[in-house]
Each structure stands twice: as C-alpha cells, then as structure tokens.
Design a protein around this nucleic acid. Sequence first.
DNA 1: GACAGGAATCGAATCGATTCGATTCCGTTT
DNA 2: AAACGGAATCGAATCGATTCGATTCCTGTC
Lengths: 402, 402
Amino acid sequence: MSANNQPHPDDGPDSGPSAAPSGASSVEHPRATLATVAKRAGVSASTASIAFSGVGSISEATRERILRAADELRYFGPDPRARSLRQGRSGIVGVVLEDRVIHSFRDPMTIAVLDGISQELGNENGGMLLLTSTGVGESSIQSAVFDAAVFLGCSPRLTRSIEVMRQRNIPMVAIEAQHFDGVLSVALDNREAATRLAQHVYDLGHRDVAVVTLPMDAVRELRALTDEIVAHATTAVSMERLGGAREVYPGLGGYVAANSASDDGFAAGLLVLGGAGDGGGSGDVRAAGAAGADVAGGSTRAGDEWRRPTAIIAQSDLLAVGVIRAAESLGLKVPGDLTVVGFDGARIEGLSDHDLTTMVQPATEKGRAAGRAVTELLSGGHPPDAHFTCALHVGTTSAPLA
Amino acid sequence: MSANNQPHPDDGPDSGPSAAPSGASSVEHPRATLATVAKRAGVSASTASIAFSGVGSISEATRERILRAADELRYFGPDPRARSLRQGRSGIVGVVLEDRVIHSFRDPMTIAVLDGISQELGNENGGMLLLTSTGVGESSIQSAVFDAAVFLGCSPRLTRSIEVMRQRNIPMVAIEAQHFDGVLSVALDNREAATRLAQHVYDLGHRDVAVVTLPMDAVRELRALTDEIVAHATTAVSMERLGGAREVYPGLGGYVAANSASDDGFAAGLLVLGGAGDGGGSGDVRAAGAAGADVAGGSTRAGDEWRRPTAIIAQSDLLAVGVIRAAESLGLKVPGDLTVVGFDGARIEGLSDHDLTTMVQPATEKGRAAGRAVTELLSGGHPPDAHFTCALHVGTTSAPLA
DNA sequence: GACAGGAATCGAATCGATTCGATTCCGTTT
DNA sequence: AAACGGAATCGAATCGATTCGATTCCTGTC
C-alpha cells in the first residue's frame, strides 16, 4: 500500500543453480549493487561498470553475461548518487527563481525562458532543479546537487551563494540580473528598448505621461515612485526600463507595482488615473501627491497642477492589461482617451479587443541562449555574454494625442 | 569573462601564519575538503563533520576553530554529492511531467499543483527537479538523483521507470494518474464531478449537447471523438470526465482537443458549432460526420439530423474559453444561444464579461497533499491515498434552454 | 578513592560507483 | 622466434563525506 521494500518474491524462471536460495539468512536481499552483479557474472566491478557505461572495451559475450546477471538480480543500472560523486557530474542544472514558485510561474516571460532552457538542455541530460532564492539561509541553493546554475531575475542578495558556487567551480548564468564576476550574463538591452518605446509615445504627442513599474526591492507593495525608492532599488530590470524611459521623459513618475500581474496593474492604474478616491489605498495617493513635488510629479508637467496623464507606460504587458482594465473601469477609452503601452510581447489572452503596443522581447530565445551557455560552460568552453534586443510592436492601444 | 576557476587571489585579512603560501607548488589549491579543514583545525574529519551537520556533540571552542579553518580555506560546507551518497538522501523531489515543459507550464492547474507541492516541501529541503516523461529512453528519470518522485498526469508508459524506483526504494506519488502498485495516488473524483456538472446542464433543459475533451493518447491533434479513441484512451482524466458526463448524456459525442489551451478549444468549438466551413480542417469535419453515425453523433439527438448543440461541455476551463470565443466569433451569444461549462475553476483572465460555470477543483490543495505525502513517505510513514472533490460554480455562461 | 556516566573526540568502515595503470592473452609482424 | 600491439580484464585507489563503535577525559557521587 506504499513504497514497499520487499523485493520481488519469486526468483525468476531461470536463476542459475548456484544462486537459488543462496544466503537465505535474511528474507530481504540487500539491494543489488554493481559489485553484486559483477560477482554473479564472474567479472570484476570495473568490467561490469564498462558494460553499463559503454566507456572502454568489452567483449560482446561478457557484456551480455553481465546484463543478464543484472536482470536476474533486478539491478537497473548504477546508482545516480554514487555515479555523481565519482564523476563530479549529476546532469542537473539548478534554476534559481526569485519568487515563490507560483509567482514565477504566473509570469509568461519566466515560463518562456524556462521553456527555452529546457529545450536546449534536452531530456537526456537530467533536468532542471527549481530553487528559490527567498529562503533566509539560501540553504538549498548551497546544499543541493547540481552542475550549473541559472539565475532568473535574481536580486543581488545571492552573493554568498555565488561565492560558494564559484569555489565549487559551478558555472553560473544569470538572466536579466545585475553583473557578477564570473557569472555569464544573458540579457536584453532593456534601457535602449525602453527609450525606443517612450520615444514612440512621445512621437504621438503625449506629454503628460506616467509609468507603472515592475516591483523594486523586496517590499512588494504598491507605492508611489519616489527618489528614495529609485536610489535604493536593486532590481536591474525595472531600473533599466525606467532609466530608458526617462531619457525621453526626464523625471518621469508614477507607481511601483507590487508584482507583475494584471491585478497589480489595475490597482496602480486606478491610482495613476486619479480614480482612487473610492478604493482603499488613499494613503498611497497622498504619498504620491507628497512625493509629487520631487520625482513622482513626472506624471504632471513640472510645476503645473495635477492632470490626468494621456499615456501610461507599463513595464510589463501584464501590468498594461491591468492598466487598461482600470482605465475602462473609469470610463476612459483606450486609446481614445488614454494611450497604454506595455513591455514583453506576452500575447495575453484577456485582451480580446485590443492589440497591445509593446516591446516584444525574445524570451524563449533568451532561455535557449542560457541553456546553450550552460552546456558550453560544462564542457569547458568560454561562451560570451548574450545580449538581445526588442522589437517595437505598434498595436491599437497607442494613438496620437487628440 | 566566464566561470573562472582560479581561486580568489587574496588570502583574506587574517589567514594564519602556517597557511600563507603553504604548498605553493601549484597555483590553484586543490579545493578544500572536509579532511583539509579538519587537518588545519587539528581535529579528525569525523569531528569536523559534526561541526557542520550539528549532529553529535562538540565543544563550542572546537566548533569555532573548525569553522574558522573552513573560512580561511574557503570551504563552504560539505559537498552535496558526497553527502547524498553517504546519507542516501539528496533532498530533491523529482516531478515528472508528461509534456514538454512549456505545455505543462501553460496549464494553470499544473502550475497550481506545482505550487502546492513546493509549498509543502518548503525551501529547506532542496527543490523540485523537473523531468519529462517524453524522452524515449526515460533516461533522465532513471539516472537522475532524487529521493522521491511525483508524477503529474503521466501516461502509463512509465512502467519501467516505476519498477526501477520501486527497486531503489524511491517513494512515488501520482497525481491524477491511473493506479500503480506501490504508487500513492492523489486525485479528484473526476467522474462524480463530471456527472454533477452534466446534470446541471441537463437540469437547465439542454438536450443537444456536445463535449470537447482533453487530449487522449499521445496523438495530440484535434479529432472527432470516436468509439475507437475511447477504447484505446490511456489518459485517465479525460476518460473519467467523459464517463461522468455520459452518465447523464449516454453516448455523448464531440471532439478531442489537441491540447488544453484556449486555441484548441477555439478550434474544437468551431467544429462542434458547425462553422468550420471557412477555416481549414474541413477534413476533420467530415471525419466527424462519418463518425457521427456511432458515437460522435452524441452531439445530435440519436437518429435525428444534425442540430447545433445548445450546450457544450468543455473538459477544462481553457478549452471552455476557446469555445466561448469560437461561439462569439460565429455570432452566437453566451449563454443566450449557447451554454458553455468548463472544468477546473482556473480563473482565467481573458473572460472579461463572463463568469464561467465550472467545477472548481482544489488544485493547490492536491499539490500540497502530494507534497505532504512525499514528506511522510520519506520519513517512513504510510499515508493513505488522497481524494478530492470539486465544487460546482454556477457562473453566467450557463442558462436555461430558451 | 573507586566508579558510573556523560561529553568530546578519534579511527576505520562505508556509501556505490568510476578510473587509471598494470597485466594477461593472442594474433601479427619481421 | 622474439618482439610488438591491441583488446579484454583486473585490482586498487579515489570521489568526499557520514556513521558507528571505541577511547579519553572529566565531573560528580557514595
């Protein structure tokens, strides 16, 4: 009724005469090992090893004898743990996510990247070991068995883990993270892409613009974007995308979302559009107003009184979807009354009537590049960092200022 | 510019006098091991081991001496591979997915289950190793390092792998899979839930009903549901849900989707609603017509000429969303002209105006149960199989027959 | 003052395989 | 006929830790 450890009761039809009830002292055989098999086949363990690994020369007759002995003893090949100790390889690639699994999995970009990685690693090599960097001690990262690590948008709190891996000669690849010595980087040119996207909005004539950014730091709550947050931000992606947009709209202000989900975009959208009087979180609104004096005031033209922005730049498509929903719930038409642009090119289902204007990033391609890099690093190569660029997709959610 | 294996150049501020350039024969130290550290601290390896594992008694002074020695040698704790060999535990739980990673990740139920598993396993224990069962040799499943396995909706082709794991005493848990000896089962009562859902449709007065099922077999293409497919189907879930629905609508027919995605639901929806004349795949339509004589004809009332169904039972919410889109693209109103029900309770974003009638399943709870079962099995317990029931959610996509 | 009992430490065995150098055995070559 | 070379096989060392059964040493007790 559960994992039973009693071995198969019958001995099989043709167990050799010398083997029948040998050592009937204990009812449970002590689990076959390579040595057992070798003894039964009348060869040394080293030869038996060759029969399974295929490395080295062995006569056909001997191999068959060994495999037959293995079958009889119900031995199914070398123990992965022992093999990995001896070889120094487990075939496992660790993938370190920042968030709880569920958050990461809800982000289409993360999933696309994971898919790309797994495509490139293939089935034969083992698998992807999912780890999270949230644990206080980073314990599992430091004590888990894997040959190479891929960091997926991780904060820089991993310095210790990175040092451990460096010392263990574990190759590391970071996707969209800040630079670390000895960690191969796979990333978009977020800054340039964000600039191009903002320029598109600018070219449409919009001058009252606000941003809804991806989360910054570990705080994970909806907040007005302030100088202080910007100064202490540790998340590379949101900062780069913000920096890029600010090349076009210096001092651009807005809100920091709690997560990259459409509900977060919705909440931020309500605030940005000034329709927050009914909902909770009016404290946040005031905070924004206060902060508006310095940086968050980017959503107004400097010095003027508050105006509803005519365009919102969301740092992800999920956020953009939420912003659109917020706008529509306030009775605003997109793009008639409000231009909304996103980032990612996620092809989100919910947008029946809209075709989101966004920067399309090659997410799966990024994953593949990471997978390839891992493979190369593991075979001793020295692949270069990988950079990717985005493509502007002009959809139906951006329009010239009326 | 890549994973460099030269150790940190500086020795740190306070390396002991005896350590400075000791053994300057090679530039690269040969990587510290527990033995090295023990020697340096002047203790035996066994004592050093205690300092790191905490198992056993050790004086505070000694422990500190050992930890200091470790620091100086840049030793960061025991090698996971060696530890796992000796202990027979790696802390890794293998999660075997049926599909390519990307397919699994696009299914909200799979993700919820994964999240539940990871919640229950916690960060401390290691992580989830993602494996796929598609590889021909099942090679990675049999050669990867893990302590327990969770099968996520896997086909029964894994018999060999299951045997291997049984022999290795690796506990196994299967979610929504057919029964295997020695494999703990976590599952919904799909059949009962499907019956209740169909009854709801029946009670609304619908008599011309069709089903859009989850994929069956490994074929993965959109097909009419025929007797032959049903006879050979190996996927437990789709068969159970079909069986449940047929208790209310005997001989219920329809289409087998290629995958559980809304696009697949859309395609199937077009066929079911008879509006496929414009799209491709008219071959499939004819196939359906031919097959209609026996089983697929369930979408009409027995013996009558074809009629457009007034209700469609989709076996997943994703499929249901696609079906609704198909209906609307054909100018049909939901639920005015067509009742659509789903299965899962997935809360899909795209359904702005609709609230899908569906059977809500406790997916995360299923994952948690699996995670808990794994934990128990690993500590020698004998947890029972886990069964879950669904809750009918009556939304706005089902209505009485006009 | 002898002795029990517990804490701290050590040595050796062990986990299960792979790898490397050495050895044997044969058929060829010169 | 001696020397050579390659295939097949073996033994022993190794991967790096944990564990178990001693062994010391110390403290408190009667």
